[in-house]
Design a protein around this nucleic acid. Structure first.
Length: 463
RNA sequence: GGUGCGGUGGCGGAGAGGCUACGCAGCGGAUUGCAAAUCCGUGUACACCGGUUCAAAUCCGGUCCGCACCUCCA
């Protein structure tokens, strides 16, 4: 490979050469969703970013084990259950399914391992017991808390010191805490709350516990890459580090910590609490079959920079994909361009990679080989995964096998469109241009775009 | 208050001391019955004020503005 992978590491605040523990097998863990509602576009950003990284890692190193968890026990889920009256498992299963369907529409491949928190209760209890034994955690009023002061280097990821945290504590400190920054490993459940038996009574795990336990079981003591959104640095990832390091005699949890920037709306973070969010689900209804354009819009900025969400951004991305689709119609992918790969190897510089794709497209206009390279290169970013017909929803009825991803209205099904095209061709022959234009306008209103070719034929694309 | 990130042309967005990416939109042209698609061509930029340098969007100092984390959040 021409250049080595460089990754910005939150732990050192520097771009570093990626040094795998085992170059023949990379391990990566990314924090996934708490499944109590639809994922919004901001939640989709890390999914798309780390899916792109996963593609690069597989290309460069061959084997990757990529894990992304599902948090299926959490106070928000309990709350949702109380509000809707639905059983917790009904809620978590429903939204896990929606999540996976929606992310698949964004061309995000499923991770190799999708651990669910509730499948790892035993491992979490084991981890907590270990921390208690080693003097890093204590029991109080049915809770088990991690004692931050018991650790020398707490705060290494977020650049905070225990002293600062103690001084800056603004929130009322719970009575059972020895010190304000201490965090919950295990908490008691009332009878109407879900719970599991433990050495500390019936209860449930704190939020941070699951990741440490699942990483250890599924990927090992120290992994190569741990990722997630910027807002997880503190306290979530900081606390994962604390738990894992203290139970592993100081061994690192992950060598490279990567955090994606926010998706913003008018410059402000898209978030549930601000109410300025759009779910991926509704966006896919708005742009049916065009999840790839949403994906590309998310990749137009380098992953650490903010991306401002807008419909026009998605439309702009869609136009670019439209162009590439026309250019690579009927083309099979060959091998990705080194220029595109090198852009990705530079801390996942996707805007630069996209620029290289445009350069390839320019060359591809006269060269079929370049078209194959363009397609393979775009697929490194999870783009051009669909073929021309699928993307433009051109239904090929000959064998009935390839049907587009979208259902079009019955009046405008393939036969209807072809009949109108035939009628328009006749009208054009008879110089009845008024009729010809009327047909085009009518179809345009149905989002069907007609393309007249120099040889007299007419094809169509769905916008 | 502490910590961190950023301000680049109409918009999106790389770059990071000299060769002024790239895309979208715009404009001009070719093509077209008219369009679309396609092709060719084309303009505008580095928040502000100082400094270093032969040379600064890029380095240094300061100012202003925006955002985020410190509490659940991707």
């Amino acid at each position: 490979m021409l250049s080595k992978l460089k990754i910005y590491n939150t732990l050192t605040n520097k771009k570093e050469e990626f040094k795998p523990i085992d170059p023949n097998h990379i391990t990566m863990y990314v924090c996934g969703p708490t499944v109590y509602d639809f994922a919004h576009v901001g939640n989709a950003r890390p999914v798309v970013v780390f899916d792109t990284l996963a593609r690069l890692l597989r290309h460069d190193y061959g084997k990757l084990t990529y894990a992304r968890n599902i948090t299926d026990i959490d106070d928000k889920i309990i709350e949702a259950s109380q509000q809707t009256g639905e059983d917790i498992s009904v809620i978590t299963e429903k939204f896990t399914k929606h999540y996976e369907e929606d992310m698949t529409q964004l061309n995000a491949e499923m991770p190799d391992i999708i651990p669910k928190a509730t499948d790892y209760i035993d491992e979490m209890i084991e981890l907590i017991s270990d921390l208690v034994e080693k003097g890093h955690a204590y029991e109080a009023e049915g809770h088990v808390l991690f004692h931050v002061s018991s650790m020398d280097d707490y705060g290494e990821l977020s650049g905070r010191s225990v002293a600062d945290l103690l001084a800056g504590a603004r929130v009322d400190v719970a009575s059972y805490k020895k010190e304000a920054p201490d965090f919950v490993l295990w908490k008691p459940s009332t009878d109407d709350q879900p719970g599991w038996d433990s050495p500390w009574g019936r209860g449930r795990p704190g939020w941070h516990t699951e990741c440490s336990a699942m990483i250890k079981k599924e990927l090992g003591t120290t992994i190569d890459i741990h990722g997630g959104g910027l807002d997880l640095i503190f306290p979530h990832h900081e606390n994962e580090i604390a738990q894992s390091k203290c139970s592993h005699d100081g061994a690192a949890l992950a060598n490279h910590w990567m955090h994606n920037g926010y998706l913003t709306v008018n410059g402000e973070k898209m978030s549930k609490s601000l109410g300025n969010f759009v779910t991926v689900h509704e966006l896919l209804e708005e742009f049916p079959g065009k999840g790839e354009a949403i994906r590309m819009a998310l990749l137009t900025a380098q992953y650490r920079q903010p991306v401002d969400f807008s419909r026009s951004g998605i439309l702009q991305a869609k136009k670019q994909i439209d162009n590439w689709q026309r250019l690579t119609k009927g083309v099979n992918p060959s091998v990705p361009s080194e220029k595109v790969l090198n852009a990705l190897r530079d801390d996942l510089n996707t805007p630069k990679a996209i620029m290289e794709l445009h350069q390839l497209a320019k060359k591809a206009k006269e060269n079929d080989e370049e078209k194959s390279i363009l397609k393979a290169s775009a697929q490194m970013l999870g783009l051009l995964n669909l073929n021309y017909n699928e993307w433009f929803d051109v239904l090929t009825s000959e064998d009935g096998s390839t049907l587009g991803t979208i259902e079009i209205s019955p009046a405008r099904d393939k036969e209807g469109i072809e009949r109108l095209i035939k009628e328009r061709t006749e009208a054009k022959k008879n110089k009845n241009f008024a009729r010809a234009d009327l047909i085009r306008d009518e179809l345009d209103a149905e989002f069907i775009k007609l393309l007249d070719h120099p040889d007299g034929t007419t094809t169509w694309e769905r916008r």
